[in-house]
Design a protein around this nucleic acid. Structure first.
Lengths: 151, 151
DNA sequence: ACGAAATAATTGCGGGTGCAACCAAATATG
DNA sequence: CATATTTGGTTGCACCCGCAATTATTTCGT
């Protein structure tokens, strides 16, 4: 009759969770480091710029952008303030919904992504592609999506 | 001759990375939410307490604890301040190295973990065990560890 | 069509974080 | 043995974040 209160979850569950935390921390730390020292850009800033870059017309509603970047609307609002200040993004009010605002990637912003995406891709290639084959990456993605899907 | 500058990384790599960000955000958000509303505890606080709880004697050097909790030493130092203030942890100076300090889980702190670990485990079980079998969790862990291992 | 409820974005606020600087103590170097 | 270097921990600083409240606008319900 042991107490054994240390954890009721199966060790496989806890182990996978800890590894997820570790991999996330390591990847983000490395991305933030290299983006900062090579381009003076935080990963959070890069993330926002990349989502705009990858979108038809280079513009997105702020609420959509917040959802894509996995941050709150307030955080995104201030991030856009900062990116506007740097000249990489501009705001455009939505013509069909006067509450709404688009974030628009400027030409200078596009150039910034062109140069910094190289660093971004290099880190991901080095830390993911080089260590896990394409097939593994596919199953990894599928498993992780299971955690998010259906609520 | 297209520009195709949107991203040079293989889509499998970027996809897995995005899924990692998503799963991490979702898990942390849920854990933080439920730990807070059930026990008034942030995930960051719980994390620190759990590492102490899982250790022989319930004490760890601050530097070790920072490494385990994946935060900077300064962040951990302030976190311990807070946990000491709540009575869940106490500091003990290391007898063999007068620079060092142990964080020690108090009896009250142990009780706090006893009750809150239930919520923690429930979330992990619901979001991981119920959606991925033990075998999948094992391969998931192995893959994620590849990202961290060797530097 | 009109008031109620929902939605988009912003802002104040409290709080958390990492970096760099700092001090104290231990260890390495000559 | 003296001194330089490294290591453990704390603090000042600047910054970033989410929550809740606010304002403006749109949509829903009847």
């Amino acid at each position: 009759m042991q107490e054994c209160a240390s954890s009721k979850v199966k060790t496989a569950t806890l182990g996978a969770f800890r590894s997820l935390l570790g991999a996330h921390a390591r990847l983000l730390w490395q991305l933030d480091l290299e983006l900062n020292e090579s381009h003076g850009l935080s990963f959070a800033d890069f993330e926002v710029l990349l989502h705009l870059y990858a979108t038809e017309g280079g513009e997105l509603r702020l609420s959509e952008l917040a959802e894509l970047a996995l941050v709150s609307r307030s955080a995104l609002s201030r991030r856009i303030d900062s990116l506007v200040g740097q000249g990489w993004v501009s705001r455009r009010s939505c013509p069909t919904d006067r509450r709404g605002t688009f974030a628009v990637l400027t030409d200078i912003g596009r150039l910034k992504v062109d140069e910094s995406v190289v660093t971004h891709d290099a880190v991901l290639t080095r830390m993911l592609s080089k260590r896990l084959g394409d097939e593994d990456l596919g199953t990894l993605q599928k498993m992780l999506d299971e955690v998010v899907d259906r609520q």
